[in-house]
Structure formats: C-alpha cells, structure tokens
Computed example of a mutant assay.
Amino acid sequence: MKRTQYAVIGLGRFGSSLARELTKLGHEVLGIDQDEEAVDEMSEVLTHVVVADSTDEEVLRSLGIRNFDCVIVAIGSDIQSSILTAILLKDIGVPLVVTKALSELHGKVLNKIGVDRVIFPERDMGIRVAHQLVSPNLLDFIELSRDYTIAELSVPKRMSGRTLKDLNLRVKYGCSVVAINKKEGVIIAPTANDLLEERDILVIIGTNSQIESFENEVVK
C-alpha cells in the first residue's frame, strides 16, 4: 500500500489524535503547530514536527506543503487562522484540503472557499452517540453523505440461525450487508447463504431511512 503523506496543522486534542492514528496506519505525517509544547509532545510520535505559523504563505511553501497528498487543518479555536490557512493551502495547490469546522457558519465559509472536505468532530460524534442510545443493537453509525449511512448492527438472538437470504434485506429494506464480523473473522461481501449467529456484527450500507427501518425491525 502506498504511504500517503499527510500534514496536520493544529496539534490540539483532535489534531494530535488524528495524527497519531494516521501514523499507526503506516503513513508519513508532518505535524505543525505554533505551540512549541504541543510540537514537543508529538516529536517522538510523528514522522516530522515543526513549530510554524500556518497563516504565513512563505512558511508553508518552505515546508513543501504542496507536495503532501492531504493536509488537515485542525486549528482549535482561531476561526480566522483556520480560514486563512485553508485559503493558502488551496492557493498553493495542495491536492486535498480537509478542515475542522468549529460551527455551522464556519463550515459554510470553508465550503465557499473550496475546501475539499469539512468535518464537524463534536457534531458528528453527537449524532453517532444519539443513534447508539436510541438503538441498543447499533454499534456504530457513520453518515457517508446527507442521504447515505453505513452502520454496524449486532445480530439479536431471534435472528440467529437465519441466512441473509432469509432476511431478504435488499428487497424488504433496500439496504445491503457489505460485511459480517464473526468471532472467527470478517466475511467481506457475504453471500445469501451465509448463516448469522447471535452477536455477529452486520455492516450495512443504505439510505438513512432504509437503515432506520431495518434498525426498527432488529430491536422489535
């Protein structure tokens, strides 16, 4: 697998967590922050770290930021710096700019200036937790877009011993099972004859309403 080069600007709680995980996944990560202490904390974790002002175009160019495959702007509370940094990155020619939004309005501005992806860590986590609270069988919930969702659902006892063909999810609900996580391993692209057991985890993709309909069926 190609080692993608990432740069993470802003090494606060979100940025440092993201940078650590990217490093664990085997990618090269450059960490950038104006706070020397934050940079020192990540110096032995990331591929490279540097104390720098990301709102200075010359500084960004000197770091060779244009050569990175993806740059994530994870600046904590300074909306002005976040927006200016994103503008500079797009102007310099970074292929993929992902920016953390601090509010809906901030997100709208980022979209207006052409950021490739805007993320709302606190809001998105809140949505996932809400779904998990409402449906005990729902283990994880990721909104792929405004309309599509991928969800992990635990197989209840009453569905144990049935096959995917028996459940007939595609016809009844319109959603698809893309994987089954079993004790002995994960089945990717399962067949209609794959047997389900209690506590297996179904990975399902579909529209939000399709997933919701199936959730309601599961928890009956």
Rank of each mutant, 00 (worst) to 15 (best):
R3I: 14
T4A: 09
V8Q: 13
I9A: 13
L11N: 00
L11R: 05
R13C: 10
S16C: 03
S17M: 08
L18W: 04
R20T: 15
L22S: 00
G26H: 07
G26S: 05
I32R: 06
I32H: 04
V39Y: 06
S43V: 05
V45I: 15
V50D: 03
V50H: 12
E57R: 15
E58K: 14
R61I: 05
C70V: 06
I72E: 04
V73R: 02
S77R: 14
S81H: 05
A86W: 00
D91H: 08
I92D: 01
I92N: 01
V94I: 03
K100C: 00
K108W: 09
V109L: 07
L110V: 04
N111P: 02
R123N: 10
M125P: 01
G126C: 08
P136S: 07
N137Y: 14
N137H: 09
I142K: 14
S145F: 01
S145W: 03
D147F: 11
T149W: 06
I150C: 05
A151R: 05
E152Q: 03
D166W: 09
R170N: 13
V171S: 11
I180R: 12
K183M: 10
A189E: 15
T191A: 07
A192G: 06
A192H: 10
N193I: 10
N193K: 15
L195Y: 06
E197W: 10
I205N: 04
I205F: 09
S209T: 11
Q210G: 02
Q210Y: 05
F214I: 03
E215Q: 07
